[in-house]
């Protein structure tokens, strides 16, 4: 679903070796870097962190939506939601596989998530209180994810870029099914429309935070842009998202919870009000509405599945002994 500019500060030591210069020249020439190629240690570390946290976001992202599978209002909606949640699991797996090509073990990444050392997108620490939230997540959260992920299809690291191409192809279904849900509610009874409006009110600001801190605070962007891991700044992507989304919301007949939102004819952009970055930092630091619940659910799934993993390995070992 989404990688967030999580901006863990990493003292980027300037590498002045001839290898580093050759590496940068390859990047500048738009060559892709493949797993066994020489790469600066900081490039490897940055990618392992970004790809694994992106994978964690996909996996944790299954939880808020999974919450509504049994209560979807029709079989059509239920089938679509099941397929979407399954896709999120798949996206997590493509991304874990891409990260593993850099020499980190799957088990190590899972351990980092469960122990709280690795982060995931702040958006999944908000609760899904009504069915309208499922539509709104598809429309806004997946919409924001697409904005962020399309440039990642041209990321300098080959396996990440290839995984993102697969992800983006599937993400479009997610956004359209979400918008259809919100549209149906917006054209429904006054109570249904109110439900859609309430969901938009609660999700709008957290969605704008998904793009990460403003460029003025972003320690990480410069190096990531130089390495072509990142192609656009947080603020540029956020503006792109707002410009694309506001007219879609107006078509639904909904209003955005931002009194400062207005179209600036001179720049051709929608201008929006100040984002509450204190809330963003709080949620990222572990103090959002659902942080503890999400990690507890992941831990339980991991623990409950342990006997299955062990049994599968024991069975494989037994079959191998028999064949020998």
């Amino acid at each position: 679903m989404y990688s967030q500019a999580l901006n863990t500060k990493d003292a980027a030591v300037a590498d002045t070796s001839p290898e580093a210069a050759r590496f940068q020249a390859r990047i500048d020439a738009e060559e892709r870097i493949e797993p066994n190629d020489w790469m600066p240690e900081a490039y490897r570390r940055t990618l392992i962190r970004q790809i694994s946290q992106h994978a964690h976001s996909e996996v944790v992202g299954m939880l808020p939506e999974g919450n509504w599978i049994t209560r979807a209002p029709s079989l059509r909606r239920k089938a679509a939601l099941l397929a979407k949640v399954q896709d999120e699991g798949g996206h997590g797996l493509y991304l874990y596989a891409a990260a593993e090509t850099l020499g980190v073990a799957r088990e190590e990444m899972v351990d980092q998530l469960l122990s709280g050392r690795a982060k995931y997108s702040s958006i999944f620490n908000y609760p899904t209180l009504s069915w309208a939230d499922i539509g709104t997540i598809g429309w806004l959260v997946d919409g924001a994810a697409i904005m962020n992920q399309i440039p990642l299809c041209r990321c300098s690291f080959g396996p990440y870029a290839r995984a993102m191409i697969r992800v983006c192809r599937e993400e479009s279904f997610h956004q359209r099914q979400g918008y259809e849900i919100v549209l149906t509610l917006a054209r429904g009874t006054p109570a249904q429309k109110a439900m859609a409006q309430d969901a938009l009110n609660r999700w709008w600001w957290p969605c704008l935070m998904m793009f990460g801190p403003p460029d003025t605070d972003s320690q990480h962007s410069d190096t990531s842009m130089r390495w072509k891991i990142k192609r656009f700044t947080n603020d540029a992507l956020r503006q792109k998202f707002v410009d694309a989304t506001v007219p879609q919301g107006h078509f639904l007949g909904l209003t955005f919870p931002d009194p400062d939102l207005r179209f600036d004819a001179a720049s051709g952009h929608w201008q929006f009000g100040a984002i509450d970055w204190a809330e963003f930092r709080r949620v990222l630091a572990g103090d959002g509405p659902c942080n503890r619940e999400r990690l507890a659910a992941r831990q339980k799934a991991h623990d409950d599945g342990a006997w299955v993993r062990e049994a599968a390995l024991a069975h494989a070992a037994k079959q191998q002994r028999k064949a020998a």
């Binding site: 593993e100 290839r162 995984a163 494989a316």
Partner: peptide
């Protein structure tokens, strides 16, 4: 891409999914 699996049968199943 790649998958993790205990044996070939489960690897095929996971790859399909």
């Amino acid at each position: 891409g790649s998958v993790h699996a205990a044996d070939a049968t489960m690897a095929l199943q996971a790859a399909r999914d």
